[in-house]
Design a protein around this nucleic acid. Structure first.
Lengths: 233, 233
DNA sequence: CGCGTCTTTGAGGGTACTCAATCGAGGTGG
DNA sequence: CCACCTCGATTGAGTACCCTCAAAGACGCG
């Protein structure tokens, strides 16, 4: 992917799933002109929490994790971004510094779009700005649900829920394993618990034949039951 | 407050702190025509989680709590809305049902504005729509911070943080007590813990002379130290 | 093959939850 | 005016969940 060539936004196959669906010729041209794309390897940072937000990013390929660094340096994963998702727009628009860090989970191709282009689009394109609001509102809904879950559910319930969510969000590969490579620690940072707790719970799920484990890879065997657990029955 | 008369939006003293700051004459007129205001007593519901969102609300007076109902009926308080805040817009824009319930904490005067007026404003007024996006983005930032806190901090740290937040958000009355009347249970639902845990922690804070308690009323005596605790030093 | 990183397992302990009982204040009705 | 009732606040006891620390095992990479 190293020497990957930029695709013109106008012809980008992802535009239907992003906000950039119905721009004018001119807007496409400007967007394309302003953008700055590059590949990132696993472990690379796209932006850091606290940095000044000079623009936002559109993920064309790969998986990115968004996390906040809490006390004693522990990461709390807030969300993942994949093909077609935009990240960092939140901080650009609210004119704050980035409120989370974006780090690459699997090799990614990401386009950077400077802040003023975003503001310009919001100003001139109603459709775009409505979609953007809706995007933010959906994320807000998800975040609120997450707060309730973390506050009220047990680790067991949350882990089950996370597995279901990952399954829906990233699907499975040809072997039936979840299509996202996470370390145990990352899983823990997503669930909001200690690494060891995740490990213990995973082996419990395994012994109940709800999942199959092969190193870092996870296969969901009984989605229904996991669903039940996550809703605590 | 029972027979309170509606104020014209255009002359509403709160408009500077809300999104409705720079509307055209016509927009003010339409907003004013469409709205529907009423008073609510403590305990009244403004809207319920899961209901169809036919519009949003602007709080003119009083305090409203927003919460999600989690497992076994336990409330998780997501936010408060006071004078000048708008609520429910999230669900209107993302065209979902209300994702939380709004219930009155202290007597409130609230204006309802139907969905199509909101969509119309977003469509025709760039300034309004930018402010709305920024509002959503700020809320999103807060929510993400909250997730990290709940996942990583202890009850003691979270309670200290909540007290500081309430102090900043609602201030104190002439006696020096926090200007928001919350039951112990509501505090617990905000912190994300059991009622008894909040009570125990409050008396611990009291014995350390960080706060003073008088029935339901709380006075912060040592903000600095509470701040320290919330950041775990 | 050796090293580092990640994973796993075990032991021990602390935080915070649940359950239960008591206390206290405010409101109601006799 | 007081007994009564109800709801919220408080306190205590017991325990479950989950965290931390420590050590050993597995895996991948140079």
């Amino acid at each position: 992917m190293k020497h990957r060539k930029n695709i013109e936004c106008k012809y980008c196959t992802l535009k239907t799933s992003t906000l950039f669906e119905q721009l004018t010729e001119e807007e496409y041209a400007l967007l394309n002109y302003d953008k700055n794309c590059q590949t990132y390897k696993r472990g690379d940072f796209i932006f850091h929490e606290g940095n000044h937000a000079t623009g936002f990013y559109c993920v064309n390929e790969g998986i990115v994790k968004m996390f906040k660094t809490g006390t004693e340096g522990r990461e709390q994963i807030i969300a993942f971004a994949k093909k077609g998702d935009i990240i960092g727009y939140r901080s650009v628009l609210s004119k704050e510094t980035f409120c989370s860090t974006a780090k690459v989970i699997s090799e990614a191709f990401v386009c950077f779009i400077p802040a003023q282009r975003l503001f310009k689009l919001v100003e001139t394109n109603h459709d775009f700005s409505l979609k953007l609001i809706q995007q933010a509102c959906r994320e807000l809904g998800t975040a609120n649900k997450y707060i309730t879950d973390i506050a009220q559910k047990t680790v067991r319930e949350r882990l089950a829920e996370v597995l279901i969510t990952l399954l829906e969000q990233f699907g499975i590969n040809e072997d039936g394993y979840l299509n996202i490579p996470l370390t145990r620690e990352e899983l823990a940072n997503l669930v909001g618990t200690a690494t060891e707790s995740v490990i213990r719970m995973l082996s419990q799920f395994k012994s109940q034949e709800l999942i199959e484990l092969k190193g870092r890879k996870i296969k969901v065997l009984n989605e229904k039951e996991l669903q039940m657990i996550s809703e605590q029955f």
